[in-house]
C-alpha cells in the first residue's frame, strides 16, 4: 500500500514564523515544509504551540514574522475563508460541528464553496438550485459511504456520541475536497477501536484521494505508525523534523518528553 506512494514537491512551506500574544511567544522562528501526498505529524508536549501553528496556516492567527508559501506562491495576510478557498480544510481539537443541523446538512455545508446558485435561484429552489443540490448530495453520499456513517445521515449531530462526531467532522472537511487537510488531535478521547477506525480512514483518505494531511496527535503509537514525517515542537520552538525513526532517536526529543536529570 505504501510501497508505490509518491511523495511530491513542497505543498506548503512555513519560513521563520514567529507568533506572539503580547509578551508571550507562542511560536519562535519555526520553519518546516509539508510535501504533497504525505502525512505529516506535528507532535510536542502540551503548550508547545502545535494548535497555534495550525491556526497560523489556517489564517486565524497572523504571525508577526515569517512567510508562508503555499503552492510556491507567498501568501499575503489571510482570512480563514480565503484559506478554505485555496484548498485548506481543518478539523478541531474539541469538535466544532453545527449542533443544530443533521449529519447530512453538516457535510453539505462543507460544499458551500463549490455551490454556485444565487439567492433567487435558491428562493425558487426548483430548477438550477435543485439540480445543484442533488449533484452535491451525490458527492456527500460518497463521503458518507466512505466513512461508514450511513445510519446517522438524518440524526442531529448534537445527539451523536463523541467518536461519531469526530468522524462527521472529518466528513465535513473531506466534503471541501481539500488539497491540504489539517487534523487537530483527530483521535483525542477515543478508545482503541475508534482510534483504529480513524487511522484507517486517515490512511485511506491519503491513499485514495491523494490528500496531503498534517495532523497533531499525542498517541505516539499512532504517530509513528501512520506518518511519513514528524515535526516536533516544544515551547514554541522546533526540536526536530524527520522520519519517525529519526525523530525517535533524537536526543532533544527524548529530553523534552522524558525530562533531563539535573
Amino acid at each position: 500500500m505504501y510501497g508505490d506512494k509518491h511523495i511530491g514537491d513542497t505543498l506548503l512551506k512555513v519560513d521563520n514564523i514567529t507568533l506572539a500574544f503580547g509578551g508571550v511567544k507562542a511560536l519562535t522562528d519555526i520553519s518546516f515544509e509539508i510535501r504533497e501526498h504525505e502525512i505529516l505529524a506535528i507532535i510536542g508536549p502540551n503548550g508547545a504551540g502545535k494548535t497555534s501553528m495550525l491556526n497560523v496556516i489556517n489564517g486565524f492567527y497572523h504571525p508577526q514574522q515569517g512567510r508562508i508559501m503555499f503552492r510556491g506562491a507567498e501568501r499575503k495576510a489571510m482570512r480563514p475563508h480565503l484559506a478554505a478557498k485555496q484548498g485548506i480544510a481543518r478539523t478541531f481539537q474539541n469538535v466544532a460541528l453545527f449542533k443544530g443541523m443533521s449529519t447530512l446538512d453538516n457535510i453539505m455545508t462543507g460544499r458551500v464553496l463549490k455551490m454556485k446558485s444565487n439567492l433567487f435561484q435558491q428562493a425558487i429552489y426548483w430548477g438550477a438550485n435543485q439540480r445543484e443540490e442533488i449533484e452535491h448530495r451525490e458527492v456527500v453520499e460518497k463521503i458518507i459511504d466512505f466513512l461508514e456513517i450511513e445510519a446517522i445521515r438524518k440524526t442531529p449531530v448534537g445527539r451523536l456520541p463523541y467518536g461519531l462526531q469526530k468522524r462527521v467532522e472529518l466528513a465535513r472537511a473531506l466534503a471541501m475536497e481539500p488539497d491540504l487537510l489539517l487534523l487537530d488531535e483527530p483521535m483525542a478521547g477515543m478508545n482503541v477501536e475508534e482510534k483504529e477506525d480513524m487511522c484507517r480512514f486517515i490512511l485511506d483518505v491519503n491513499d485514495e484521494f491523494g490528500t496531503t494531511i498534517a495532523l497533531i496527535e499525542h498517541d505516539m503509537g499512532v504517530v509513528m505508525d501512520i506518518s511519513d514525517r514528524v515535526v516536533v515542537l516544544d515551547y514554541g520552538r522546533k526540536l526536530a523534523d524527520g522520519s519517525p525513526d529519526e525523530v525517535r532517536a533524537n536526543q532533544d526529543v527524548i529530553d523534552a518528553y522524558l525530562g533531563v536529570s539535573h
Binding site: A84, A89, A96, F98
Partner: peptide
C-alpha cells in the same frame, strides 16, 4: 451554531 468552524469551511 459555530461561527469559527463556518469560516474555516469558507463561509
Amino acid at each position: 451554531d459555530m461561527d469559527i468552524a463556518a469560516e474555516i469551511i469558507g463561509i
